[in-house]
Design a protein around this nucleic acid. Structure first.
Length: 218
DNA sequence: CCAGACGTTGTT
DNA sequence: GTCTGG
DNA sequence: CCAGACGTTGTT
DNA sequence: GTCTGG
């Protein structure tokens, strides 16, 4: 699964990947569900970079509370689920991260996981009209079975796309077979190290959260 | 037909 | 145990 | 994802 | 909006 990540690259660096910006660039080392995350989606012929809330609220929802539970979407069932099927067809996006956190199942030890540069998670977005009429844009991150690197920690992980896959993911009329093949697994090369349990509390947020720690006995 | 749910994680 | 908040 | 609350009456 | 359950 993916329930926490980090983004601290400058907006200048991120702009190398997008055509325009509609966001502030406050760094965060502990991004939690419910907060604002940086996404790229297609807008006509161009791509836009914008902040959206993490936790998908489908356009048909009567209450935005449903979003607190829709932070991830299983790749295997995207096309069947009323909460995700419309967004999968028309509102795919990338979620930008410098790395993400995973808690090892057996002992709750947190790890920080990185690639060789920015990470692009496959995501979905929605626009929901709030009671006062203002739009709320929200996001879910797609998960897939863990690859060999991640399996020791957990049996699920986010779908992470390389540049070529990301273009396909954002294409307005993609080959659906090709899209589905992107979601089956994550081939991206990743490395990881244990971090302090200080990451557990959403109140903590500083660069030290990413630093490797010794794990006591091992 | 209408009412009510619409999800993932993990755990048992 | 389950929900909400971060 | 984890942490922290989980309630009413009434008072300031 | 659409599907499932009653």
């Amino acid at each position: 699964m993916c329930g926490r990540f980090a983004l601290y690259s400058s907006v200048n660096a991120i702009m190398a990947y997008a055509d325009r910006l509609a966001a502030d660039d406050a760094p965060s080392y502990n991004i939690t569900p419910g907060s604002s995350i940086l996404t790229i989606s297609r807008d006509g012929d161009s791509r836009i970079l914008k902040r959206r809330i993490w936790g998908l609220v489908p356009f048909w929802a009567k209450d935005k509370k449903i979003g607190t539970r829709l932070i991830n979407a299983r790749s295997e069932s995207l096309t069947d689920k009323p909460s995700f099927k419309y967004a999968f067809q028309k509102r795919r996006c990338l979620v930008i991260a410098d790395g993400f956190f995973e808690w090892r199942k057996r002992d709750k030890q947190p790890f920080y996981i990185v690639g060789e540069g920015l990470l692009f998670f496959a995501g979905l977005w929605e626009r929901w009209t709030q009671p006062d009429g203002t739009p709320l844009e929200t996001t879910a991150i797609i998960t897939t079975p863990a690859n060999a690197t991640m399996e020791p920690l957990h049996h699920r992980m986010p779908v992470i796309l390389d540049a070529e896959q990301a273009q396909l993911w954002l294409h307005p009329s993609p080959s659906w077979i090709a899209l589905h093949s992107l979601l089956e697994s994550t081939a991206m090369s990743l490395s990881m190290h244990p971090v302090s349990k200080e990451i557990n509390s959403p109140a903590n947020n500083h660069p030290g959260l990413l630093e490797e720690v010794n794990m006591g006995l091992f």
